[in-house]
Design a protein around this nucleic acid. Structure first.
Length: 500
RNA sequence: GGGCCGUUAGCUCAAUUGGCAGAGCAACUGACUCUUAAUCAGUAGGUUGAAGGUUCGAUUCCUUCACGGCUCACCA
């Protein structure tokens, strides 16, 4: 702590020196001629002789990343987070007064420089400073230049420092932005209308999850932060908007892990006159295009795997259970996956969790998660889910226990979830009643009754299919990121210990 | 929430069985006008995450707590 105080004092002293010498320590603006990227683009190809002939003067600015002083001269590297550029400062070029200013510079300071572009003997593109400017002071020293900042906790808590010293971090978030832009392009081209629906809701519906609770003072009502976008978007389908989407933050009061952050970004899109099979085709086209645009190809490295977006698979949930069954000796017949007793003994044999109150559908879903989910590395649609776990989905014709629903798995993670939307208000009401019964039995994540949503269906909703895509997880897959924290700039952490 | 692991200088890391807390970079002073992990000489920097305990002596062993990582549970 003492040392940090010393470092701080030294830098504060230099700040005072700037003032004493008549400089504004925090000037208001700096007019630059080029960004560092523009410098690279404009001059990277030019030879030393060409640059020498043109002597093109530039004004550039950025943060000092390293300094190599040499008595009456010195080199500094500045960076803007993406590009670096070397500045060469000579006392006989900038003059004694400006050279004194240069000598007050610290690594981490924000500075400007003006002068002609040239190449050093070693070929490095460099600004030969005619004058340097101090733009902002670094009081807290940056991490060292070799190992940088690696401590995960510090990187997340001080993401600004992480971004300064770890260029890969910025690249991830640039790619995340490209993914989101490409989603909008894809949907906008196809005439989906982007909308915004309430984050604050009196009933947190559309998914099975525990919500965050809050309170509105003037109305004196309890509210929840939304756990899904679904029910409002389907109200808009009722309202006659046949293709609609929202890209927004949702909030779930659940555990935190490498795949879960309490707030995360979801795309949900709905289209009338379609069913879940139509959405599989749309999804395959959309995800393949995004992968290609964001990564430059259809084969994408993810950890130890190469994901191939040219070979998608489709299989039912039951087929997946059978295909990935670990022990040939106990491998069940497909018919056995409908009988509760058989399912219970199968679940015990592979240590799949279940409750005695669970029906066959729920146990079958548990079997899937235990034996198949991790193995679904290549893009795979798993379809036909048990009705028990899907209160908003339409059942398959002739099979009331199965719903028209699929999930997309990539790299062992659930990336998307879609279904043919239940649009029969009477059946929807009955499904909500069944969820209320589950809630009474202690299931905190069971869906709440939403009378207004039933009423909306009462006005008539066309046959509709809808889908949610987890943007954070999709970004993980396309940026080779092992943790969701790598693709969220400021993931939720406990507050720092104030006594530390 | 459970289990395991971690926390030492601003950053990255050492420290023998429990026996003087150290290095590199950053910083400070000096030298150095084409360096790029610049170089050379010197200096300073520590309540070892916090609080207790055992001990002649604790970075090291024990207990509790804080924060983080991995993992399981839950979920997307």
């Amino acid at each position: 702590m003492e040392n940090q105080t010393n470092l701080l004092q030294q830098r504060r002293f230099k700040l005072a020196e700037l003032k004493r010498l008549g400089y504004d320590p925090y000037p208001r603006r700096f007019g630059y001629s080029h960004t560092l990227g523009q410098i690279r683009k404009a001059f990277e190809a030019a030879s030393a002789a060409e640059l020498e002939e043109k002597k093109e003067a530039v004004r550039v600015c950025g943060r000092i990343m390293s300094m190599r002083p040499q008595g009456k001269a010195g080199f500094i590297d500045i960076a803007d987070g993406e590009h670096r550029l070397q500045i060469y400062v000579r006392r006989d070029k900038v003059g004694p007064e400006n050279f004194e200013l240069f000598r007050l510079f610290d690594i981490g300071d924000i500075i400007g420089a003006e002068g002609p572009i040239f190449r050093t003997r070693t070929g490095e593109l460099t600004v030969a400073a005619a004058c340097v400017h101090h733009l902002s002071k670094n009081l807290l020293p940056l991490p060292e230049k070799w190992h940088g900042l690696t401590d995960i906790e510090t990187r997340l808590r001080r993401r600004y420092v992480d971004l300064i010293v770890n260029p890969d971090v910025r690249a991830v978030f640039v790619k995340r932005n490209r993914i989101i832009k490409e989603i909008r392009n894809f949907l906008d081209e196809r005439d989906y209308l982007e909308v915004e629906t309430p984050v604050l809701q009196t009933i947190a519906g559309g998914a099975l999850a525990r919500p965050f609770a809050t309170h509105h003072n003037a109305l004196d009502i309890n509210l929840y932060l939304r756990i899904a976008l679904e029910l409002y978007l389907k109200r808009l389908i009722v309202g006659g908007i046949p293709k609609v989407y929202e890209l927004g933050r949702i909030f779930r009061n659940e555990g935190i892990s490498a795949q879960h952050n309490p707030e995360f970004t979801m795309l949900e899109f709905y289209q009338a006159y379609s069913d879940y099979r139509d959405l599989m085709d749309v999804t395959q086209e959309m995800i393949t295009r995004i992968a290609e645009k964001a990564t430059g190809g259809r084969r994408v490295k993810y950890r130890d795997h190469v994901l191939d977006f040219d070979s998608w698979r489709r299989m039912t949930l039951k087929e997946a259970v059978l295909q990935f069954w670990p022990d040939p000796g106990t491998k069940p017949e497909e018919s056995g996956l409908a009988d509760v007793e058989t399912l219970r003994s199968l679940a015990r044999s592979v240590h799949a969790p279940f409750e005695m109150s669970d029906g066959p559908g729920k146990i079958c879903a548990s079997l899937f998660e235990t034996v198949a989910e991790d193995r679904l590395i290549q893009p795979t649609f798993i379809y036909d889910y048990p009705a028990e776990t899907s209160p908003l989905s339409k059942t398959k014709s002739g099979d009331p226990d199965t719903v028209e629903r699929f999930e997309l798995y990539i790299a062992g993670m659930e990336i998307a979830n879609a279904y043919s939307e239940l649009n029969d208000p009477a059946e929807q009401e009955a499904r909500f009643e069944a969820q209320l019964a589950a809630r009474d039995r202690g299931d905190e994540e069971a869906h709440a009754m939403d009378e207004d949503y039933i009423r909306a269906l009462g006005y008539g909703m066309p046959p509709t299919a809808g889908e949610g895509i987890g943007i954070d997880r999709l970004t993980m897959v396309l940026t080779d990121s092992p943790s969701i924290r790598d693709v969220i700039l400021f993931p939720l952490l406990r507050p720092e210990d104030p006594t530390a």
